[in-house]
Amino acid sequence: MSDSMEFLLWTKGTLFNWALAIFALGMLARLVEIFWLGRAPNYAEARAGQWGPGLRTVFTRSFADPGTFKRSGFDVLVGWVWHLGFIIVLFLFIPHIELIKSVFGMAWPGLPNPVIDAISALTLAGLVAALVHRLTHPVKKHLSDFEDYLTWAVTFLVVLTGYVAYHRLINPYPLALGIHILSVEIFLVVLPFTKLTHMFTAFIARWYNGAIFGRKGVQS
């Protein structure tokens, strides 16, 4: 490809702006709607505070209870591995930190590249395992629809192209990096309109859950 540099600059320029705009617009629209609609008013007298249990649940629901773990240990474990891997690679790879710094003005220390490399390999393996499980498990397969596969694919592509770019497996490098950035932009555009919004809403839902329990005086 003879204009790989042009391609890279396009993904780093115009396209980046568009993707970011669609993401911000879509995500904020959804969040504002959720918050403004809120919950139905509860006229019962509160038995206890809701903030503490709400916040606690945001955290505790990250860990499966023993029953769930026993029933679907594979899902819990693999899910943990690649979710955590994805987050670490996203926020602690130094080129990513530079990007975040340039857009949001915030920065923090990163991890050495070989550590990130190993984690992304694990993340990739986790994602493949999750897909294989989804395709072979009869119940899961039955429950899966197009959106499940779409969100898997855009997530997997982000990590895969990043791995390929880091190891310079595609030449020339501007092409490899451009493909990675493009796949991230696809991810950003798809995010607000699919179940990928759980990156934000999962925590809101947990908070509501915990808060409701707390108000009722139920252990959360």
């Binding site: 780093k12 320029g13 115009t14 702006n17 080129p95 530079e98 340039s102 857009v103």
Partner: peptide, 12 residues
């Protein structure tokens, strides 16, 4: 850094 976008996206 090479990973930084070439546009200023604050306004967008």
């Amino acid at each position: 850094a090479l990973s930084v976008p070439t546009v200023d996206s604050t306004q967008t």
